[in-house]
């Protein structure tokens, strides 16, 4: 049982598997004609977004609505008060309005953790992406999608049978490629994939790897081709890389980046047939990922988006109903 969802580092294997199993239940709801469960009727979920992200906000909004919660979207970006005042004031305002859960997206690492700990609001806090720290529901939906694929099930859509249920990702070989340094998706994935038993390889130029990455529970490669030769990957997760990084000398230019760390046509063809291609979106086609890879049948990129709703339903359910066992009873 978890009180807030701030970091996947706080999730044990049992917690993670329980949330993924709940998400399987939720995937059934999304397939129904009436896509609603009454479990959060009368509860208020606030989407508190200090940073634009229409994709993530819509996904959380759909998730909350399918659980019959009331949803308030609160965009705090560009607010005139100083940043610091607005976080405390906003939190206290939401508390006064009776928010039952707050989904927070913030450009600064740690802002959701601060909201959870500062005492301004007592409601559960769900981290929807904070700075370059974490994005736990993205990692959960990645794990959900991968678990389906490894079980040979359709990567999205309603649950078909029980084969994925209760399982982790034991023995899976997963590559995470790109800007690990600035990626909240990578941090959340490293923790969660490890908790679920997968073997993680991080592939990036040294400039885009965090200091001390050799102490992380992952194998590190500077050379993409060497990594592809070393492992038979079940999944290759490409991270979004911002073009602007080249102006800060993280790499010389986009051409060289693509040549060395992009999932190019040549590398795509080299992948074994079973290797799933994943990307948290939005993609830079032709930069970190070539069009053939992005549009391939084994690309699970749209499945990831679809599964996001089920996983976020499960996360909200977990936080707002105490634990995941109620749904299954």
């Amino acid at each position: 049982m978890i009180r807030h969802l701030l970091s996947t580092a706080d999730l044990g294997r049992e917690d993670a598997v329980r949330i993924l199993d709940t998400a399987e239940e939720m995937s059934q709801v999304s397939a129904r004609e009436v896509k609603k469960l009454p479990v959060l009727r009368g509860r208020t979920v606030v989407n508190l977004f200090f940073e634009d992200s229409t994709r993530t906000r819509i996904s959380f909004e759909a998730a909350a609505k399918r659980l019959s919660a009331d949803v308030i979207n609160f965009s705090a970006k560009g607010s005139s008060v100083s940043k610091g005042e607005s976080l405390q004031d906003t939190a206290q305002t939401l508390a006064a309005m009776g928010a039952d859960a707050v989904v927070v997206r913030h450009p600064g690492s740690g802002a959701p953790a601060r909201l959870a700990a500062a005492g301004w609001i007592g409601a559960p806090i769900l981290n929807a992406g904070d700075g370059t720290h974490e994005h736990p529901t993205q990692a959960l939906l990645d794990a959900f999608t991968l678990r389906r694929a490894l079980a040979g099930l359709p990567a999205s859509g309603p649950a078909e049978g029980d084969r994925a249920r209760g399982a982790g990702l034991d023995g899976a070989q997963v590559a995470i490629v790109g800007d690990v340094l600035h990626s909240r998706v990578a941090r959340s994935n490293v923790h969660l994939l490890r908790a679920l038993g997968a073997h993680v390889s991080l592939i990036a130029p040294p400039t885009l790897l965090p200091w001390g990455v050799h102490t992380w529970p992952a194998e590190v490669f500077y050379d993409f081709d060497e990594a592809l030769a070393a492992h038979d990957f079940d999944a290759v997760m490409m991270l979004r890389v911002q073009f602007e990084r080249m102006h800060q000398s993280f790499f010389p230019n986009t051409r060289e980046y693509t040549r060395l760390w992009g999932l190019t046509e040549q590398r795509y063809r080299r992948l074994p047939a079973h290797t799933a291609i994943m990307h948290p979106g939005p993609m830079n086609r032709g930069f970190e990922i070539c069009a053939s890879a992005a549009d391939a049948e084994r690309a699970l990129i749209l499945d990831q988006v679809e599964n996001g709703v089920s996983v976020r339903m499960a996360a909200l359910y977990e936080l707002l109903t105490g634990d995941g066992t109620e749904a299954q009873q």
């Binding site: 940043k83 610091g84 005042e85 913030h106 600064g108 690492s109 601060r114 500062a118």
Partner: peptide, 11 residues
């Protein structure tokens, strides 16, 4: 207090 009762990155 305003400069410390905030998120880390704004403090």
């Amino acid at each position: 207090a305003e400069h410390k009762c905030s998120e880390w990155t704004a403090a």
